[in-house]
Design a protein around this nucleic acid. Structure first.
Length: 874
DNA sequence: AATCGAATTCCTTATCGGTAG
DNA sequence: CGCTACCGATAAGGAATTCGA
């Protein structure tokens, strides 16, 4: 079943009109509920989504907000189902007489071109609470997420029921118009009343145009007169109302309605409603995939296929999936269920294909808040825009290039919790883009066309910042937003293969700093002319970047796996040569000239207190002296080697094949990368190679378990060790890779990421494990990562199967940290691993995190262990 | 309680494209 | 048809305010 969306990306406000006079206003007492909890444990984040398909239960949406959300009625909308798209629109436009009560699709959120206010939760703005608006009574009925019944989500009644039927079916009486929230649906908990307003049937409606309401863009002006919402307000939404009273929003805010300043017939709700006589939305888009049901595991998604704004501005189509497929060949035609989740690492290339970022984005891009106007598309360093190209594709059909905002943490690439890609549709934008939500992650899709040599200019991707408090308070969110301001653009493509398979490739950009401050204050190293030298140092290295100053210092550091700094030395800067964009330094000697294995260190540029660049990688190579005593690797050194190898070896590790809808196990060469073999094959690939290649590392099970408790990114594995990750069924369905060891742990948080699997309870593990070994929704996966002939000692494949373990969602560390668990003996065979797994210590596998961030995390843990809890914990 | 850095919001300006005169 | 002024919107920079460590 598909969802129905108003306008281009999200935002449908379904409004009930008709005779609603029987609504008992006394029942419509506004209730500030602020409950993020899903109604029960069976409620999966992917079950029900709002207009952005964000899991509703995760929206800390104060109910006093004028939710742009709406309720839908399966039955009512079904009345239009037989219509052709245009007719459908016409029918909707024809007013309440067509169906009573009339369900109006009201673009919301950013369609409040003047109504965006600061109290709109960014997530809420991105995913507001479903709302029933009763125009005749000027009341908005806010639906708590709890009232969403996953059970009803699988309704097959109508094509729009995937997302909304759970909300609507039991709550809307199609014929009577007596959609009294509290009466029809006790789950409606938040209703407020206002003075009556003009009936939509009689009131003129402002045309829903790009300009006034259907624009996907927020107002360019600040639209948050209430001021910043305090943390307390999040916890006590009543305070929101108080705060808002200080500076009421003129745009249909809660206050407005409470004080009688209601939506007039031409007020925002009317404006955004857009279906009044003579007005039609610029675009009405329905999600496609009528044949797919909701994925209760949270991998459900809705495509928001839309017409190109620039070329189809005058058309108002509801696009069924089949049409969208015809309209946009190669795009949106792949069942989401068969696509790898966004969290999965993918290679950037195979033998045949390569997805490459021809033009990297600038390392700085100030993201905009929901309350701000757009800050434009991400630019390239040359002043243009990033360019992505798929090499090796010989097909004639265009493909859809997906773009989303990922983390900049090199250890794991996953959708960034605090940033979303923002579709830019300005006049300067030339690239057609489509927008959809995949598990709370907004994804842009742009066509890669053979006629353009499968190259796309990414001039339509901006970055939206979500407020930390909103995200952190989200149920299950464990990431922290503070100082978590670096992102990467992630590009992903699914290339159809003969037989219905797809090859999925992914490439991530250089990290992009999204904060305001750092763009002008923090030094930024963009390039270094060398990545390594001998332990003796002394060589000149040229750093290219920004914000260097005469006071800039370059500090080389080395840390252990658990993040403890064991070495620091300042390099000599040639101040005479250096400029604001270039530093000439002399590499300092390494602390130990007798090492026999390359030593991976970091360096950073610091301009003063707290103004330091991100750590850069550097490798000291041992002297080629045979007399240097060779000793067995200690844990740290072996880790260094593993790390270094991960940075220097050369080819894509595996491909991700998936079938549509069911994959067949295949393997291109049946080889399994084996980190333990750890070839020191310096292939010249720089760790600073802007093209981060993401994939899963398959460490040898026995020895290096301790070093494999994370997804290593930027890793490239020799060709001979390339494997193919294939699965049957839908990763989206089960999100499971079955395997045993070692554990590669996906974690929603950086700190959890490093904590091993100890906190995972068996049931959770069972649910969360991603099995490379096989694949099935029931945890009986069948996919295989074959082992390499190079490791004949390896046992059967299941011994190599790699568990990608998704940390069960818990509250973030400061608030609800799981008690330190025991390290599974099989998963922590080394002393290093045990050290790293000791509770209360955040370890660093790749020292490329903001040290301040790590410091903060460690401090949090320290406090937590001593009984001091962070904010939000009492 | 004070301080400071970070986060968020607000204000302002520049630029561009469309349109009317 | 070309020019200019005006308007609206986006993009962007800067800074004030607020929060939280």
């Amino acid at each position: 079943m598909s969802s129905f969306y108003g306008e281009e990306k999200e935002c449908s406000e379904l409004r009930l009109s008709g005779d609603l006079t029987q609504v008992n206003s006394e029942e419509l007492e506004f209730d500030y509920l602020f409950n993020y909890e899903p109604p029960n444990s069976d409620f999966h984040s992917g079950d029900l989504k709002d207009d952005t398909n964000l899991p509703l239960h995760s929206h800390p949406y104060p109910l006093d907000e004028p939710s742009p959300y709406t309720e839908s009625s399966t039955e009512a909308l079904s009345a239009y189902e037989h219509l052709e798209p245009k007719n459908y629109v016409e029918q909707v436009r024809s007013g309440p007489q067509a169906v009573s009560p009339r369900i109006e699709i009201t673009p919301s959120r950013e369609h409040h071109s003047h109504g965006s206010n600061s109290l709109h939760d960014p997530l809420v703005n991105a995913s507001p609470r479903p709302t029933l608006t009763v125009p005749g009574l000027d009341c908005a009925i806010y639906r708590e997420p709890q009232c969403l019944s996953p059970a009803s989500s699988n309704s097959s009644a109508s094509w729009h029921s995937e997302t909304y039927s759970p909300f609507a079916s039991p709550c809307v009486s199609p014929g009577s118009g007596q959609a009294v929230a509290g009466e029809l649906c006790p789950r409606f908990q938040n209703i407020h009343t206002g003075s009556p307003r003009t009936s939509p049937g009689t009131s003129p409606r402002t045309s829903l145009t790009e300009e006034n309401s259907s624009s996907p863009r927020p107002s360019s002006r600040s639209t948050s007169p209430q001021g910043k919402r305090t943390y307390e307000m999040y916890r006590n939404p009543n305070l929101v109302a108080v705060a808002r009273s200080r500076s009421p929003s003129p745009h249909g805010s809660h206050d407005d309605r409470h004080t009688g300043t209601h939506y007039g017939s031409n007020s925002v709700t009317e404006v955004v409603n857009g279906f009044g006589p003579g007005s039609v939305p610029t675009k009405i888009v329905r999600t496609n995939q009528p044949g797919y049901t909701i994925y209760p595991d949270g991998h459900g998604e809705s495509y928001l296929v839309e017409q190109d704004v620039k070329t189809k501005a005058e058309q108002y189509f509801v696009i069924p999936s089949i049409w969208s497929k015809q309209l946009v060949p190669g795009i949106c035609s792949i069942p989401i269920a068969s696509l790898p989740p966004l969290e999965w690492p993918l290679p950037s290339r195979t033998d045949q294909y390569e997805l490459h970022i021809e033009m990297q984005p600038k390392p700085h891009h100030r993201a905009h808040y929901e309350t701000e106007g757009s800050r434009g598309a991400v630019k390239a360093m040359t002043g243009g825009h990033p360019v992505v190209q798929l090499h090796g594709y010989r097909g004639k059909e265009p493909l859809g290039l997906q773009i989303f905002i990922g983390t900049a943490d090199e250890r794991i690439l996953k959708p960034h919790a605090f940033y979303q890609v923002h579709r830019i549709t300005g006049k300067t934008v030339t690239t057609t883009s489509y927008e959809k939500m995949i598990n709370s992650t907004k994804v842009l899709e742009i066509p890669l066309e053979p006629k353009n040599n499968m190259k796309a200019i990414i001039d339509c991707a901006g970055i939206l910042k979500l407020r930390n408090a909103d995200i952190e308070l989200r149920k299950g969110e464990t990431d922290i937003g503070r100082k978590n301001t670096r992102v990467r653009l992630v590009f992903r493509i699914h290339i159809p293969q003969p037989g219905g398979q797809y090859v999925s490739l992914q490439v991530a950009s250089q990290p992009i700093e999204c904060s305001q401050r750092s763009a002008h204050e923090l030094p930024m190293v963009e390039k270094q002319d060398m990545d390594s030298c001998s332990v003796l140092g002394g060589q000149q290295m040229i750093l290219t970047g920004q914000n260097f100053s005469a006071d800039s210092k370059v500090i080389f550091t080395e840390k252990t796996h658990d993040g403890q700094q064991i070495w620091e030395l300042e390099a000599t800067v040639d101040k005479d040569k250096s400029q604001t964009s270039m530093l000439f330094i002399e590499v300092p000697p390494y602390r130990d000239p007798t090492i026999c294995h390359p030593a991976k260190v970091n360096f950073y540029v610091i301009n003063g207190k707290r103004k330091r660049s991100q750590p850069q990688h550097f490798t000291y190579t041992p002297l080629p002296v045979s007399s240097i005593k060779t000793e067995p690797l200690d844990e740290y050194e072996s880790g260094q080697i593993g790390y270094m190898m991960s940075q220097t070896l050369g080819v894509s590790p595996h491909s991700y094949y998936h079938h549509n809808p069911r994959s067949v196990l295949t393997s291109d060469n049946g080889l399994l990368p084996n980190m333990a073999s750890c070839h020191q094959n310096h292939s010249g690939i720089s760790p600073s190679d802007p093209c981060f290649q993401q994939h899963i590392v398959y460490p040898r099970a026995e020895k290096n378990l301790g070093h494999s408790l994370y997804i290593q990114t930027g890793v490239m594995v020799p060709e001979a060790h390339r494997s193919v990750l294939v699965h049957t069924g839908s990763p989206a369905k089960s999100s499971h890779l079955i395997g045993q060891q070692p554990v590669i742990q996906f974690s929603p948080t950086n700190h959890h990421l490093l904590r091993g699997a100890e906190n995972i309870t068996p049931p959770a593990q069972e649910l969360q494990n991603l099995y490379c070994e096989g694949y099935s929704p029931q945890g009986t996966p069948t996919a295989v990562a074959s082992r390499s002939p190079a490791t004949p000692q390896a046992p059967q494949s299941q011994h190599y199967s790699t568990v990608i373990q998704q940390q069960p969602y818990t509250n973030r560390l400061p608030k609800d940290r799981s008690p330190p668990g025991q390290v599974h003996p099989q998963r922590c065979s080394s002393a290093e691993e045990q050290r790293a797994s000791l509770p209360g210590r955040v370890t660093v596998k790749q020292e490329n995190l903001d040290q301040a961030y790590l410091d903060d995390v460690n401090e949090i843990i320290r406090k937590d262990l001593t009984g001091v809890h962070g904010r939000g914990q009492t």
